[in-house]
Design a binder for these strands. Structure first.
Lengths: 67, 67
DNA sequence: CCGAAGTGTAAAGGAAGCTTTACTTTTTGG
DNA sequence: CCAAAAAGTAAAGCTTCCTTTACACTTCGG
């Protein structure tokens, strides 16, 4: 799973710290998500998508990962 | 956060065990999600939505929970 | 050049998601 | 009614998400 967080953040001209604040997590959480260390929870995914005015599916890309 | 898993499952006439199998988790995980014991991960939410041919937002309802 | 802002890494710990096992209760069909 | 299927509970344990703290590296305006 990948995501467009870093890209969207740049388009919106905001820092990791500002986004972290807006969606109520720490800066390290945003860094880890952007760098693919782990996946967002459903709630956090929702808050991030909502912040950018998009759906979860528009921000998080599920390129049909096989089990 | 609530979800329509039980409802969708009934509409599709499948058991918890069948859904669990289809989305590759245990039956207990489906029970827990349906009964609101915890929230799905983003990946599982995606697999469930995909199974029903819906978006995550159509299956999981984020009634603007305040922090 | 220099400091501040932005981005990054690391590691320990707590909380939440999920599994496994085992057992109980409810629902359904013949 | 009675058995089988479906739905539920409980608890221990592992993994993943997220926090906290602390420190390093890069970039950029003045």
């Amino acid at each position: 799973m990948t995501n467009k967080i870093a890209q969207l953040r740049k388009e919106h001209h905001i820092s990791q710290a500002e986004l972290a604040d807006a969606v109520d997590v720490t800066r390290q959480t945003i860094i880890s998500l952007e760098n693919g260390r782990y996946n967002a929870s459903l709630l956090l995914a929702h808050r991030i998508a909502k912040y950018f005015g998009l759906t979860i599916e528009e921000v998080f890309l599920f390129e049909e990962e096989e089990g």
